[in-house]
Computed example of a mutant assay.
Amino acid sequence: MAGTALRLPRATPVRVLVAVFSCGLVPWSVQTFADSGVPFLRFAWGGLSFTPVLYARTLIEYLALSGSPLVLPWVVATGCWVLAIASASLAFLDREDPRVTAGLLVLAGAVNASVAVRFGIQPLRTGYPVGTLALWGVAAWRYRAWTRA
């Protein structure tokens, strides 16, 4: 149908909070190593490894154990996402500014993309910033809802 606009769900406080929170449920990046081919899934809360067995480690554990320069940006991205959840929660009090929520999600996605890219430029490694797409998709939805208000 020519001329029809894409209809997005109405941005109710519950939908906004669920959408923003859901961004933390998808892997933020899928990281692979050429020697094993087995992926490592990095989430906002921590990581999930499949070698040699299924193993989960929280972001707090990575902070304590790792000297990797990628851990700090990972924490920053997670912090931006947590602040976006707090901002989205303000919708229940009719105090949310969708631009703030969207901006925090854009920042979280950009920092997350930088982590995946910096991981991927190392020899025999690849990083796919899957979570960035989710974060930016929800940010676009929030911003679009604001421009239509």
Rank of each mutant, 00 (worst) to 15 (best):
G47D: 10
L48W: 14
L48D: 01
S49Y: 15
S49N: 11
L54H: 10
L54E: 14
A56Q: 12
R57I: 05
R57M: 14
L59H: 10
I60Q: 13
I60V: 15
Y62D: 09
L63H: 08
A64C: 06
A64L: 15
A64H: 09
L65H: 12
S66R: 10
S66K: 05
S68T: 15
S68A: 07
L70M: 11
L70G: 05
L72M: 11
W74P: 00
W74N: 01
V76D: 09
G79C: 08
W81L: 06
W81F: 09
L83S: 11
L83F: 11
I85T: 04
I85D: 03
A86I: 13
S87R: 06
L90C: 07
L90N: 07
A91Q: 04
L93T: 10
L93I: 09
R95S: 05
R95H: 09
E96Y: 01
D97S: 10
P98F: 00
P98R: 00
R99C: 03
R99T: 03
V100Y: 04
A102E: 01
L104T: 00
L104S: 00
L105E: 01
L105R: 00
V106T: 01
A108L: 10
A108S: 12
G109K: 03
A110I: 12
V111T: 12
V111E: 03
V111S: 05
V111D: 05
N112D: 15
A113H: 10
S114C: 11
V115A: 02
V115I: 15
V117F: 10
V117W: 08
F119D: 05
F119L: 02
G120T: 11
G120V: 02
G120C: 06
I121R: 10
I121K: 06
Q122N: 10
Q122C: 02
Q122H: 07
P123E: 07
T126G: 04
G127L: 03
Y128T: 04
P129K: 12
V130Y: 11
G131Q: 12
T132S: 12
